[in-house]
Amino acid sequence: MSLSRLQTATDILTAHTRAQEARAYAAMAGTGPVSEPLPLGAGAVDQCLDGGLACGGLHEVRSPLARDIGAAAGFALGLAARAVQADRGGRHGIVWVSDPAARIDGGGLFPAGLAQYGLDPSGLTLVEPCDLQAAMWAADEAAGCAGLAALVFQIKGNPARFDITATRRLMLRARESGVLALVLRQSGEEEASAAATRWRVTTELSGADEIYPRGVGAMRLSLTLERNRTGRTGQWCLAWNPKTRNFDHAASDPARQPAHPAAHPVDRLSATFDRQDSPGAMGQVLDRRRDFGRAS
């Protein structure tokens, strides 16, 4: 086959994809939010989101470093717990789909911890497919299931296969069914996606503990709304209240700001593995550094 013919074939394919995209966007613009938004409980955040997260939609929660996965999972599970609590016409159950790559060093959910966090572990269905493609299929199926309260799709990094088309498919299916679909991206870069919002979650020093000042207080997390399709972005410090299942505003204590900010910005490189467009690392970078940020 000559090169020019190959070129033409590629052009046709690209045009076809563009047309599909245009149709998808038109469909998304045509239908408004399917159900009422899900408020987080923290006033300023809800105001920024015009009342809360759009329930039938896709939202991305990413942790910049692998060790922030605790905070990011905490945020995603808090949202899921609120979605279960909101009921929304008998919806129940959370489906947690994890890509096998995310399971290797990420550990697994701990039911006793979930219960203390305010989430009923028996309402959780864990799906662990054997590869990313099967995981994406499972997430698609769950996003289209109208009886479900929330779906969490845990992936690691920015796999090339989970691209904008895949996120758009998830978005459309969630919009149709009204499921709160969350992508939990461990040590992922920001990248173009069809998600309605993208949150960057890192951990924050815990609150003061009156009874035992040297102890670990209520957990806090630092939340950055990096991208919001419908409104403004912002940054907040929130604390999760397991009793009320609310995110409350917490003042980040200036006296307790991180003592040692990152020594070398280059060390904070996070995982971007199989992307052709990713910038190459300078010098020799060890695997664990990419995974676990700053080596001291």
């Binding site: 999972a73 697994g108 701990f110 006793a112 219960a115 203390q116 966090y117 305010g118």
Partner: peptide, 16 residues
């Protein structure tokens, strides 16, 4: 399982 309390003693993520 204990009822949810503000005091959290168990982690969300447990390593296998």
């Amino acid at each position: 399982l204990p009822t949810p309390d503000a005091i959290i003693t168990r982690p969300l993520i447990l390593f296998d």
